[in-house]
C-alpha cells in the first residue's frame, strides 16, 4: 500500500480512508480473524484473497466505456448488447464472472437512470466498485420518487417530453446505461469515443463529456 509516506491524497486524488496506521478497530480485528480462520481451515487461500483484490482493482469504468464506444460504432454489437449485455461484454474480452447484465439505451425520448433501493447492487464486475454516493441512503431513497430533481443536482436536466426510466436493481440483474452518442463526436475513432464515456453516464446521472 502506497500510504507509508503519509500523503493526504491518493494517486486518484481522493483522501485515503483511515487505514493501517491508525488504531486497530474491532471490525478490522474481525476481518483479520475471519480471513485467517478461513485460510487455516482450507476454505480459501491467501493467494486467492490477494488475486481477488487485484481482479477487482483492475475493473474500472474504462471497461464499460469501451463497451459503450463499441456499441456506438457497431450497430450489430449494439443489438447484441441490448439483447444480452453480459454476453456482449464477455465477447469483448471482459471477465465479469457470473454477473447478469442488462443494458438500457438512452434515446431522444427516454433517459435511463439506475439505483438499488434495497442495498447497493452495481455492475461491479464490469465497472469496479460503486461510488460512495451510489450506496448512500439519500441517493437510494430519493431516486425512485424524485429522479428529475436528483438528476438536476448531478447537472443533468431532462426535458419534459423525455420519459425518465428509473431502474431499481431489486434482484439478480445489474444495469448499465447505454448513453446516446453526442452529435459532435461523429467521425471520432472508437478509442477516442471511449474517452467521452464517463462512469456517471453509465449509471444515468451524467452525460458523455469531452475528455479533459
Amino acid at each position: 500500500m502506497p500510504h507509508d509516506n503519509h500523503d493526504t491524497l491518493s494517486t486518484s486524488g481522493h483522501p485515503y480512508r483511515k487505514d493501517d496506521d491508525t488504531a486497530l478497530s474491532y471490525w478490522q480485528v474481525m476481518e483479520i480473524a475471519v480471513r485467517e480462520l478461513l485460510i487455516e481451515k482450507g476454505h480459501i487461500t491467501a493467494v486467492q484473497v490477494h488475486d481477488q483484490i487485484n481482479t477487482m482493482d483492475a475493473r474500472s469504468p474504462a471497461h464499460g466505456a469501451k463497451v459503450v464506444a463499441h456499441a456506438w460504432c457497431n450497430p450489430e454489437f449494439k443489438l447484441a448488447l441490448l439483447a444480452d449485455a453480459a454476453q456482449a461484454s464477455r465477447d469483448m474480452g471482459f471477465d465479469i464472472g457470473p454477473m447478469h447484465l442488462i443494458a438500457v439505451e438512452n434515446t431522444a425520448s427516454v433517459h435511463n437512470v439506475v439505483v438499488c433501493t434495497l442495498c447497493s447492487c452495481y455492475p461491479r464486475n464490469l465497472l469496479g466498485l460503486p461510488p460512495d454516493w451510489y450506496k448512500s441512503r439519500a441517493y437510494r431513497s430519493r431516486t425512485v420518487i424524485e429522479p428529475r430533481k436528483v438528476l438536476s443536482e448531478f447537472g443533468v436536466d431532462i426535458a419534459q417530453d423525455v420519459q425518465v426510466r428509473v431502474h431499481d436493481s431489486t434482484a439478480d440483474m445489474r444495469y448499465i446505461v447505454l448513453p446516446a452518442q453526442p452529435a459532435r463526436t461523429r467521425g471520432l475513432l472508437e478509442n477516442e469515443l471511449a474517452q467521452w464515456v464517463t462512469r456517471d453516464s453509465m449509471i444515468g446521472v451524467g452525460l458523455p463529456q469531452a475528455p479533459n
Binding site: 425512485v144 424524485e146 419534459q160 420519459q163 425518465v164 431502474h167 431499481d168 431489486t170 434482484a171 439478480d172
Partner: peptide, 11 residues
C-alpha cells in the same frame, strides 16, 4: 414528480 415517468424493477 412526473406522472408518466416510470420505475422498472425485478419482481
Amino acid at each position: 414528480e412526473t406522472p408518466d415517468d416510470v420505475i422498472e424493477a425485478e419482481i
